[in-house]
Design a protein around this nucleic acid. Sequence first.
DNA 1: CCAAAAGTGTTCGCTCTACACCCATGT
DNA 2: ACATGGGTGTAGAGCGAACACTTTTGG
Lengths: 245, 245
Amino acid sequence: MKPKKIPNISVDCVVFGFDTTTKSLNVLLINRYLESKDSNDILVDDYVLTGYHVYEDETLDESASRVLKEFTGLTNQYKKQFKAFGNPDRLTNPKDLVWIKSEAFNSRTITIAYYFLINTEDIDLENNTHYAKWFPLKQLPEIGFDHKEIIKEAHEDLKVKCLSEPIVFELLPDKFTINDVQDLYESILEIKIDNRNFRRKLINKKYIVPLNEKQVGVSKKPAQLYMFSKDVYEKIYQKNYLISI
Amino acid sequence: MKPKKIPNISVDCVVFGFDTTTKSLNVLLINRYLESKDSNDILVDDYVLTGYHVYEDETLDESASRVLKEFTGLTNQYKKQFKAFGNPDRLTNPKDLVWIKSEAFNSRTITIAYYFLINTEDIDLENNTHYAKWFPLKQLPEIGFDHKEIIKEAHEDLKVKCLSEPIVFELLPDKFTINDVQDLYESILEIKIDNRNFRRKLINKKYIVPLNEKQVGVSKKPAQLYMFSKDVYEKIYQKNYLISI
DNA sequence: CCAAAAGTGTTCGCTCTACACCCATGT
DNA sequence: ACATGGGTGTAGAGCGAACACTTTTGG
């Protein structure tokens, strides 16, 4: 038996990925496309976040995980509920109204927004029935609903969060170089970081473990590979109460 | 004309206050009381957060502000939306079910939770039609719904937030002593802080402005009073990107 | 041998931490 | 005079910031 949708409550997922080659922080978006029945005019052709209604019998977290699985096939990824969006006018621009009509959902829908951090290598967008595509955060296409705002706030939250918790490793392959990590921080925070200081800082962390491996197939000096040990991190982690106001 | 309630969406407000005399971080709660019609048995007698349904034509923020005004008379207080709670079983313990029946609202209600920081001196609970009362966070009474969890998460969020932004001053009178601020930080963070180091740190901030005033009516050496200058803070504020993982 | 990116040390200044006693006031 | 909490100084360690050149590799 099919679960019942709650008509006015949804989750939207900002799925972040990082492309180490282009050094680009990306967001996964799906195409929202609608043609007029009569005239074949294109009524809507833009992009929105992955999202769906919440079902009657699931938690919000489960709902977000379900959506992620549906669009990417992935489970157990880093997930954070960061904000609820519910302005009465959030789905009321002309294209949104056309879309809502065709999809028959409530224009006063509150959405609970999550972001996910995933390793781009883990997913295969070719065999994807939803036309999901990565877009660099710095070059987004036309975005529907209030999803531009949602992406912006997800990014803001991620900026703060990545300073105090080692979540960036969720965006990297298991084996990475120090420079990968630096590139990633620079992309997220939109700043330049001094390589020597950054490198020293990271290498001194006991949970950044050097492997007996170097990069292969690069046409330059191959870099040392490292892994992140969650175990070690959790063992040595201790809360700090530094007041910096 | 009366605004229309959205039946399955509410806001709940964790209203924090600080009592400088008892050095206690408090939460504002209202009594949830219900007697049986037949037997005069007490069916429900516990405490819950201030909260209410969201109206069709208001934003979530407006909804939270409306609730705060209704229960305290206050407007323009520090407000933060920190999480949405929507588990299917969040309102399903026996007392909650009795209450929900008597109030006729949907047991699958998603609530958007906010916390407010207010100066206890600003409100007068005597002339309060809702039986709102302050309770120390450390000694909460019996709490209905999932509001204990909501309070806990509000507190966690406040702990993190107060380390990086000068929001504690929202909980203090306009004129305060350095020790008031220390007491407040100790209450929120549940730690001890070295007085000399803390004092030095605060006094060196340009936005902590010494007044030409001391405490009056205390039976000991009266302390120097200070104020917080938001203007100065905003002028000298600059984002810092210190990665501490 | 050349291009490209990896990797490497030192100095300076600031801030955090730890720690114990005298002082001013009201009663 | 006394009880109460307000207020004060210093030294050591650790960390962040600034800064430019050499090395290694593949092509």
